[in-house]
């Protein structure tokens, strides 16, 4: 086999991944971009309307609510799942408890369970005929008790957020745990012998060492939360009213229930633009933080 030069090797390594990816994701999304400027009525494209779909969507209160709900999901992901993931990975890594393997498994478990199961189980517990509700009705002798938060315009998202926190923290825990292995154990031992506090070890050793991974995870968290669909769809389907609507649900409904490909495509483009903006923001923050560490 003739030896490849550096540039050819580069393309041999890169191209297989790149080509599959371009053909299956980037090409269709450009089709979507084109479609997002078209008007649809009665299952047919009826013409070009420029930014009409975008104007419609951006002035729709249901979309505003969806956007806000996605932002909440993003906040719980970046500020909840990631820190909790780090903490849990660290606790397990330091082996302060017996049976770390068992607990690793338990924390990992939620991501192996599909969202459909989680939603199903959740409802069996908290719905008006659920285990929890029945139990509270029994001990308080208030037969009208239901979990009111589900019907609250302001807080209906809260249960979804809690489940997301539980479900996805494990993802970050696994990533952080694998990366904590890269810090030689002698570093921790030395720090402990020097009498460093655990909080100091976390802020001075663990966080700087993990910072590239934290950045990667933040990107994952942001993109994942702006397109989250499965769990919300299975748990609430956007209800009650539209209190738990999210953008991907809005997209799904306009595309597949109301047959408006133009509007559906415009929503996916909006999601992409928003994510790009937010990720650039995180990248900026990350760059600044790195400078500080150096």
């Amino acid at each position: 086999m003739p030896r490849l030069n550096k540039r050819s090797s580069y393309y041999v390594l890169l191209l297989p991944a790149l080509l599959i990816y371009l053909a299956i994701i980037i090409f269709p999304i450009f089709m979507s971009l084109g479609l997002s400027f078209t008007e649809w009525r009665r299952f047919r494209m009826t013409g070009f309307i420029g930014l009409g779909n975008y104007m419609d969507i951006l002035s729709d209160p249901v979309f505003h609510r969806s956007l806000w709900n996605n932002i909440q999901i993003m906040l719980i992901s970046v500020l909840g799942q990631i820190p909790l993931g780090i903490l849990l990975a660290y606790l397990l890594h330091r082996k302060w408890v017996k049976g770390t393997k068992f607990f690793e498994f338990m924390i990992f478990l939620p991501i192996t369970i599909s969202s459909v199961v989680i939603a199903l189980l959740w409802n069996r517990v908290f719905s008006p005929v659920g285990i929890y509700t029945t139990f509270v009705r029994m001990i308080t002798s208030n037969p009208d008790y239901v979990v009111r938060i589900f019907e609250s315009e302001k807080f209906a998202m809260l249960p979804v957020l809690v489940v997301l926190l539980w479900q996805h923290t494990s993802l970050y825990m696994v990533i952080f745990l694998a990366n904590l292995q890269r810090i030689p154990s002698s570093v921790f031992e030395a720090a402990v012998i020097d009498g460093a506090k655990e909080t100091t070890i976390i802020t001075k050793i663990v966080l700087p060492a993990l910072s590239p991974v934290i950045f990667t995870c933040s990107v994952l968290a942001i993109s994942g939360s702006l397109k989250s669909f499965d769990l919300v769809y299975a748990m609430t389907a956007g209800g009650p009213v539209n209190y738990t609507y999210v953008m991907a649900l809005y997209l799904y409904q306009h595309t597949f229930t109301f047959h408006n490909y133009g509007k559906g495509s415009a929503v996916s483009i909006i999601i992409v633009i928003l994510s790009v903006g937010l990720i650039s923001l995180v990248r900026g923050i990350y760059a600044k933080a790195q400078k500080k560490f150096e």
């Binding site: 409802n123 719905s127 008006p128 005929v129 509700t133 037969p143 009208d144 008790y145 979990v147 589900f150």
Partner: peptide
């Protein structure tokens, strides 16, 4: 019943 808007079809049947 209380919670009519948070009860699925099957859950109402169950009640």
């Amino acid at each position: 019943s209380p919670g009519v808007n948070q009860m699925s079809n099957t859950e109402a049947d169950q009640e």
